[in-house]
Simulated scan of single mutants.
Amino acid sequence: MLWIKAFHIISIITWFAALFYLPRLFVYHAMSDDKISIERFKIMERKLYRGIMMPSFVLATIFGAWMIVENWTYYSIQYWLYAKLTLVVPLIAYHFYCGHLLTIFKANKNTRSHIFYRWFNEFPVLILVAIVILVVVKPF
């Protein structure tokens, strides 16, 4: 089970790296006005989302579910886990909204400024802090 936990943590780290970096690319993409930069950002965003962000999300979900299923007797009464999973839901929505934004940028239909994406980029940080506190401290 420690191997599954290790792979879950690795997947989470990779997923969060992508969750932090893709919106940062959106910031720079929204600031770009030359065709070469715009096309470069489209490629970078697509490769990050499809090649790193989506696979790490899937693996984190699989390994996390595996741990819960294998240890259901323990986890079923751990209320911190329910709080954590509640926070994971908006994080998943954020993940897929990033995919939606990717489609908007790909079609050259972005209407938001780089300032919006700078603020947008902060959301996963708040979720990460709360989740780490729940998992480590287990306040309830």
Rank of each mutant, 00 (worst) to 15 (best):
D34E: 07
S76E: 14
H100I: 10
A83W: 09
T86K: 02
L25E: 02
G64R: 07
L59H: 02
F20L: 12
I68D: 05
Y75E: 02
F120Q: 07
F116I: 09
W119D: 06
P90N: 02
F63S: 14
R40E: 14
Y49H: 07
E39Y: 00
E39N: 10
T111L: 14
V69D: 08
F116V: 03
I115H: 11
V58G: 02
Y21M: 05
A107T: 08
F57H: 15
H29T: 06
L25T: 05
I115P: 04
P23T: 06
C98M: 12
Y49M: 06
E45D: 09
Y28E: 12
L85K: 07
Y74V: 13
K84M: 10
H100N: 14
F105R: 07
F105C: 06
W119F: 15
A18S: 11
L81Q: 01
F96E: 00
L25F: 00
L91G: 11
R118K: 11
M44W: 15
V89S: 01
M44I: 14
M53H: 11
N71L: 09
V88A: 02
T86Y: 10
G51V: 07
A18K: 09
I68S: 01
F120W: 10
Y117W: 11
Y79E: 14
I62T: 02
R50C: 12
E39G: 04
I62R: 04
D34S: 03
A60P: 03
G51M: 02
C98Q: 12
